[in-house]
């Protein structure tokens, strides 16, 4: 269909979102989109969800770290912020969802708030909780296997 004249097009805001989960988890755009729409629908209802939009327009993910750009209708950024806060898991992995910032264009949003590249994970043994344990290290962050359970620590905790 012929696209709308400029003054009739919706005004968008683009929300930069950072995601963090276990290093071996890989998430797809589709999974994150589904969880976001679920969260929005459950918290805000169909009517407000439709107003807020919430389309994931950019998504990158690797080694348990990712970022996304989510579209919100102008004036509904706070609705979307609330919905994003209510995402606990994506594909059964607990994720930390953090809003980094809001911009008026996708490009500005990516340039200002989306970091380039992710920290490469490194598997090694560390001293933690009275023993040598297998761990995956990403920069300062350490995920340790403690007797079948995961513990999350920092490099300072495992010296």
């Amino acid at each position: 269909m012929k696209h709308l004249p400029k003054h009739l097009r919706p005004k968008w805001r683009y929300v930069a979102v950072a995601l963090e989960t276990d290093p071996e988890v890989s998430l797809s755009r589709g999974a994150f989109q589904r969880e976001l729409w679920y969260a929005a629908q459950n918290l805000l209802g169909d009517a407000v969800s439709a107003d807020a939009d919430g389309t994931v327009v950019r998504f990158q993910f690797g080694n348990g770290d990712g970022s996304a750009v989510v579209r919100a209708r102008r004036g509904h950024v706070e609705d979307l912020r609330a919905a994003l806060a209510c995402i606990e898991t994506v594909d059964d992995a607990t994720v930390a969802v953090t809003v980094r910032g809001v911009s008026g264009t996708i490009r500005a949003c990516e340039e200002k708030f989306i970091p380039a590249g992710t920290e490469r994970p490194d598997r090694r043994e560390v001293a933690f909780a009275n023993g040598r344990r297998r761990a995956i290290v990403r920069g300062d962050r350490v995920a340790v296997d403690v007797d079948g359970e995961r513990a999350y620590a920092t490099s300072e905790d495992v010296e």
Binding site: T21, L43, R81, A82, L84, A85, C86, V95, T98, Y152
Partner: peptide, 18 residues
């Protein structure tokens, strides 16, 4: 019970408002 459960003050304020 996990660092991943934490949400920023603005996010909590937005949720609170809803």
């Amino acid at each position: 019970t996990s660092h991943r459960h934490l949400r920023g003050p603005r996010a909590l304020a937005a949720v609170g408002e809803r």
